[in-house]
């Protein structure tokens, strides 16, 4: 009962949170120079009358405050508005891109967590040995190498060798393939962007897992478990590891938010039709409502991700109870 109330309270707090965040984002977009119509103003073939008509049609002639509340009014009815650029409802645009982003993010998310946590444990248990040192070098390369650079190198290699497709989610033939070949094709195309994302994120997780397990291994209760006669296997997996997982659960919750927005650069370089790229282009073109919708989605995910993290934490740690 306490937990249900707690979740309800957290979700209710989400509403004012969301409201404040949308105000900030909207203000920031308004403060940045230029509007969506500027690109048309530069085009001499478009007449002043057309421009004025467009301005009126898009609602850009109204003061910013009015625009904001107009948008907010639609949002409460779950209408995310129209994209200026695509001239289509924002919700449809996002719906189309959601799958691409989700496939890419989820795939690299799962792999980075498995690889990061497992290698982190190995690294901690073999601390200061050659294995640990090699893993540490790999981890620091992952942390230090900028994603865009790795993506470009991979792209270059793909272009030189032809072993991997150089971008996109679908090939021209996808539509003609049967389900199984289409799946294989997409899976193949997924590898380079997924590798770029994974390499950047597993390293941090690995270092977290290593540090947290090493901390716990120094705790008295781990030594006490040994003094009780527990075999080393039980000491590590039952006593140390379960305690070392807690900080990672917090990170897990927070990183759920990145599932739909964390891959802007990678998506752009690999021309992956995802949400990140859509948002990035919308920002450049001052396509307000796309940006706002994307912000709303990220915020909701962030709050829900943190909530899931907190609930998981309560599930594994008896000291945490939500009343």
């Amino acid at each position: 009962m306490g937990l249900v109330k707690y979740i309800a309270r957290r979700l209710i707090i989400l509403i004012p949170e969301l409201w404040i965040i949308t105000i900030i984002v909207f203000t920031l977009i308004q403060l940045s120079p230029g509007t969506f119509l500027d690109q048309y103003r530069l085009d001499p073939s478009i007449s002043r009358e057309t421009l004025q008509a467009m301005e009126k049609q898009l609602g850009l002639d109204k003061p910013a405050v009015v625009q904001y509340f107009y948008w907010l009014g639609k949002l409460v009815r779950f209408d995310f508005g129209y994209s200026f650029y695509y001239r289509r409802p924002v919700i449809d645009l996002i719906g189309e891109r959601l799958l691409g982003t989700f496939v890419l993010s989820l795939y690299s998310f799962v792999i980075s967590w498995i690889v990061g946590v497992v290698l982190g444990i190995v690294s901690a248990l073999k601390k200061y040995t050659a294995t640990d040192k090699i893993l540490t070098v790999i981890a620091f390369s992952g942390l230090a190498l900028p994603g865009f650079f790795l993506a470009l190198v991979l792209l270059y290699m793909a272009a030189r060798t032809g072993w991997f497709p150089i971008g996109g989610l679908y090939s021209p033939e996808t539509a003609k393939m049967d389900v199984w070949s289409a799946f294989k094709d997409i899976f193949w195309r997924l590898q380079l962007p997924a590798f770029t994302l994974t390499f950047g994120s597993f390293a941090g997780l690995m270092r977290y897992q290593r540090g947290s397990l090493l901390d716990v291994m120094n705790e008295d209760y781990v030594e006490f478990a040994r003094a009780k006669g527990m075999p080393e296997r039980v000491v590590i997996y039952r006593h140390a590891l379960r305690n070392a997982i807690n900080p990672l659960i917090t990170i897990f919750g927070a990183s759920l938010a990145d599932l739909l927005s964390g891959a802007v650069i990678t998506e752009t370089i690999f021309s992956w039709p995802g949400l990140g790229r859509l948002t990035y282009q919308a920002l450049l073109q001052k396509d307000y409502y796309v940006v706002m919708a994307s912000t709303v989605i990220s915020t909701v995910l962030l709050v829900i991700g943190n909530l899931i993290g907190d609930i998981l934490l309560a599930a594994v740690d008896p000291r945490i109870r939500y009343e």
Partner: peptide
């Protein structure tokens, strides 16, 4: 058997 100095940290909290 052995008893450690700090009872606060000798037992596994979980």
């Amino acid at each position: 058997s052995m008893i450690f100095q700090d009872p606060l940290t000798s037992l596994n909290p979980l």
